[in-house]
Design a protein around this nucleic acid. Structure first.
Lengths: 127, 127
DNA sequence: CTTAGTATAGTAATAGTTATCAATAAGCTT
DNA sequence: AAGCTTATTGATAACTATTACTATACTAAG
């Protein structure tokens, strides 16, 4: 994997995020510094970075894929109203049960909470 | 919600499934009995049935949405190779931790296991 | 410097899903 | 059972997110 200005900037932009932007959000931010970059380049590099284990691709509910600067396993909260995705503090331990049937190969798990985020929950109260 | 031949057949087809077909799989099966049905009708009815809580829409990793005849909460196993999605037997209890921050409204959780299904795991052994 | 291999921008193509709309069918109400 | 109202349908267009293609530009090694 060759290092290019585009790739470094994409990674840098993603790593300033506490949340989990979509490819086009990253694209728009990167364009501020590199206006000629193409959306395809953003997709390609996000893909490469995630298959190299540097970032994490979230194939989570809702339309678009999202990208997480932190590749370590942790769970997410997805807002059904504004579609934002937040990390959940994972100081607590989850003991996931073993799957009974031993012939599958289990590589990992995804735990997702969904509902309304703090902001949207507050807005809904007003109605 | 008005009852139509199309809707009943879509539900019936889905309920004969142990797995979790995509909209176009349902479409193809329904077409055997109702050749003039349109794909839009299938999407529309799957959407209605799921927002009525009769079935469940799975917005799970991988390209397409899948539909589950069983709306009760249970977890899924997704095969990274053949993309199939199976129910996991849920006789075991999972105690999911409470989310610390009380200002979110948590409506539910999704727990997904991924890896290689029995069949694909066996094939991979051969290589 | 040449060359071979990558990466890029720009654009076209694809896949999955949703929206539009005139025609039809359901399900009251009498 | 006939008429009325409104939801639903099939057909198709539109849309969104993502991937593929292609000619050009860059990089590192010999």
């Amino acid at each position: 994997m060759r290092n290019t200005e585009q790739k470094s900037l994409i990674l840098e932009v993603l790593q300033t995020h506490k949340d989990h932007p979509t490819a086009d959000q990253v694209y728009n931010e990167v364009r501020e510094k590199l206006p000629k970059i193409s959306l395809g380049t953003v997709y390609r590099n996000l893909e490469k970075l995630s298959s190299a284990g540097i970032i994490m691709k979230l194939e989570i509910g809702g339309g678009q894929k999202r990208f997480d600067p932190n590749p370590m396993g942790h769970s997410h909260f997805r807002c059904l109203s504004c579609s934002s995705v937040e990390d959940l503090p994972h100081d607590f331990k989850i003991d996931l049960p073993e799957i009974p049937d031993g012939n599958r190969v289990v590589l990992g798990t995804t735990l997702e909470y969904y509902g309304y985020c703090e902001e949207c929950a507050a807005t809904r109260q007003l109605h």
